[in-house]
């Protein structure tokens, strides 16, 4: 459970780092412990990103699961780094993710099966 909490905390740190780049006026975080998976949704109200940025973010979030990278490089999660690369780290730690523009801003969702 401690591992899970740590994972959520460092993952949220990375996601928030990304989300706050656009200086939104409001950010809502939802953490759901569903039967088979943990799902984190971050919804912001603020400026939207470019189509290219959404595309790039989606690609990062859906990078194939890589055990050889996850245990080693996930230590970087929560540390300051460059823009979209943060999501690359997030993508490494989760099973899947989705980012989309909403009427008010952006919604980013990631999910994974607890180990």
């Amino acid at each position: 459970m401690l591992r899970q909490k740590q994972k959520i905390a460092s993952l949220l740190d990375e996601v928030l780092h990304y989300v706050l780049q656009t200086e939104p006026s409001k950010v809502t975080i939802e953490i759901e412990d569903l039967a088979e998976r943990v799902q984190v949704t971050v919804q912001d109200v603020g400026p939207k990103r470019s189509a290219r940025e959404y595309r790039q973010a989606e690609r990062y979030l859906n990078a194939p699961r890589r055990n050889e990278l996850k245990d080693y490089y996930s230590g970087l999660a929560g540390e300051e780094s460059c823009g979209p690369c943060n999501l690359h780290l997030v993508g490494m730690m989760v099973d899947g993710g989705h980012i989309e523009a909403t009427e008010m801003g952006t919604r980013l969702t990631v999910w994974w099966k607890p180990e």
Partner: peptide, 13 residues
């Protein structure tokens, strides 16, 4: 605007 996974991989030309 919604980016689908298909769009997402299209950059890997």
């Amino acid at each position: 605007m919604t980016a689908s996974p298909a769009d997402a991989t299209s950059l890997a030309l």
